[in-house]
Amino acid sequence: MPTIMKISPQGQIRIPKKVLAELKIVPGDYIEVAVESGQVVLKPRRLIDPSQDWYWTREWQIAETEAESEIANKKLSPTFNTAEEGLKWLKE
């Protein structure tokens, strides 16, 4: 159901919470504004290349944080001369 909003003296509108939730938009996100056939069209936009989205997932960022912690605490594997040595170490 359409919602009517008033434009502020600064030219701003307030997007209703239900619309934000439906579009998965949060404060700080970006919106593209376009005029199409005499109508204002708002489109959520991300400044991250879509091919790099995986890096910014919650799961990946948790794994990155864990890896950085292990590196900082010098919890590193030894250097291997062959892949077989590495596989043997992993199995142990």
Rank of each mutant, 00 (worst) to 15 (best):
K75Y: 11
W89A: 14
T65P: 01
N81E: 08
Q12G: 02
L76K: 10
R46V: 08
K91Q: 10
M5Q: 15
T57A: 07
E22K: 10
I31S: 06
K18M: 03
E70K: 13
P9I: 00
E36A: 05
T79K: 15
T79D: 08
W54S: 04
V33D: 02
M1G: 15
G86M: 14
G11T: 00
E36G: 00
L47Y: 13
G28I: 01
T79W: 09
P44N: 06
M5Y: 10
E64N: 11
V35D: 09
V26T: 12
L42W: 01
A83P: 01
S37V: 03
E70I: 03
E92R: 14
I25E: 09
V41Y: 00
Y30R: 02
E64M: 12
P78V: 00
F80M: 08
P44Y: 06
P50M: 02
S8E: 07
P50W: 13
L20K: 11
V35F: 01
I13W: 05
E84Y: 04
W60N: 10
S77M: 03
I4T: 15
A72E: 09
V26S: 08
I7E: 09
E66G: 00
V35T: 14
Y30G: 08
V41N: 09
V19Q: 06
K74C: 01
R45K: 14
